[in-house]
Write a protein that binds this DNA or RNA. Structure first.
Lengths: 251, 251
DNA sequence: CGCTACGTTGAGAACAATCAACCCCGGTGG
DNA sequence: CCACCGGGGTTGATTGTTCTCAACGTAGCG
């Protein structure tokens, strides 16, 4: 298979953010506002968000923050993808999520981040100072409600992932993973059938609790059964989606 | 080993809730208020919570709700313990959490519960109609903030559990589990060294992504190494806590 | 007083991990 | 310009941890 990740094809994940350099309000033109925290805000209120936000361009592999650092910022992904993970002392890694445009990260009860985050391919995020965001949440309870909803969604996703990690076979894990990527792409109005898989086999393994080799073998296996097709540039066609769905559910 | 669970010893989990039958405000005397959602409320405000709450006595094994049911209520555990889990179609089960007094459950973005919940031993919970609680959250933003904090804590715990499920060995899982129980008991000012383990080997297995047999073998193994001691009535002494800690962290 | 549920232990099987070789592609520097 | 190098992916052979199947003990309950 061709390299799973290259910058050119990765651009398909980038939501277009048409704005002139130095424009004061990146939020007004934000293409993922309907998915993000800011969905709670009216047109005439977003400037208050814009006032505290910094837009950052993150190049591939660059960290946003590391586990244990003081949690001074929270983030919203606006283009590209971000992976978040935890490590054991001997280096074993568990990816706890892949985040796409509109997704939120950095919530911490503690004063430090509970996980590390880094860009998968070139990405952009908007960054909020934690204190200022909290002030905004206090001023706009509907924004806080929105955040609670997002956290609650995340919690449901985390529980689904626990089911996957604890009880599914390698085959079921990969099937679930591909369908999850497809569903999330559809939500963002990106191509969801030849679905774009921007992360490496190793990253996928660390997300699903498998090794690189098992991920690779399982892809090959699903391919040889005609359930998926591996296309160039990291795209995967879900040739028999219904069958894939059944595998994912453990049927 | 003696049965891991019996009603008599289970009573140690019950926080004393001294109140006369039919008293109007169970919340005023609630012994876990400082841990629960109501921690956000002042003395003179709890009656508003009491007005919408119903206190339920749940006997061992009785369900609170099942995955997929309309999510009309949310709950706060006040005594005993509750297990929450998800199922695959063929019956494989993943426990997504064990909840103790003060813990909250039933958050659902969707209109249906994303998981099932049932009592582990006789327990009591207080039940809120979802709509009325939401109204209260709107009236008292500090309560909503409290809920967000609780959700955020849960999220961190879920991520920790993903690390466990995806990357830890059986031995590491059991060590982590025992320490988690001990920590949570300490938070509730219950005995944390001979720690009380109220759930069955099977429940533990479904929480840790292991089989009953592996759980049992691993307990035996830790015991024969002198790291833990299995006491009657489901109590476990963490004889070498530091060592257990190192195992849990993967050292 | 047997029955059932739970726990323990053993033997063997199986799924995924590990160790290893190889390919392909892209980038780099001689 | 092309050979080298390194990262990612695939595939094979073997190992090993955990699962499965099975037997048995014990405690509590009807």
């Amino acid at each position: 298979m061709a390299a799973m990740f290259d910058i050119k094809s990765f651009s398909q994940l980038r939501a277009a953010v048409p704005r002139a350099g130095g424009m004061p309000s990146p939020c007004a033109a934000c293409s993922v506002r309907h998915l993000a925290l800011c969905a709670a805000m009216e047109e005439n209120e977003v400037h208050e968000v814009a006032a505290i936000v910094t837009t950052l361009e993150i190049s591939s592999g660059q960290p946003l923050f590391d586990e244990g650092e003081p949690a001074v910022h929270v983030f919203n992904v606006t283009s590209g993808a971000v992976k978040v993970y935890k490590l054991l002392v001997d280096g074993r890694r568990q990816m706890t999520g892949f985040l796409f445009p509109g997704d939120f990260l950095g919530l911490a009860n503690d004063e430090t981040y509970a996980y590390s985050a880094e860009a998968v391919g070139a990405s952009t995020v908007c960054r909020f100072p934690r204190g200022k965001l909290e002030a905004l949440l206090t001023k706009y309870p509907k924004m806080e409600r929105r955040l609670l909803n997002m956290a609650s969604h995340e919690l449901a996703a985390a529980q689904e992932q626990m089911l996957l990690l604890g009880r599914k076979t390698a085959r079921e894990k990969i099937a679930s993973f591909l369908l999850m990527l497809s569903r999330r792409a559809a939500q963002r109005e990106l191509p969801d059938d030849p679905v774009f898989v921007p992360m490496s086999r190793n990253d996928i393994g660390d997300y699903l609790g498998l090794t690189t080799e098992t991920v690779s073998r399982t892809f090959s296996d699903l391919k040889s059964t005609g359930i998926i097709e591996l296309l160039p540039a990291g795209k995967v066609r879900l040739a028999r989606r219904q069958h894939l769905q059944e595998i994912a559910e453990g049927a």
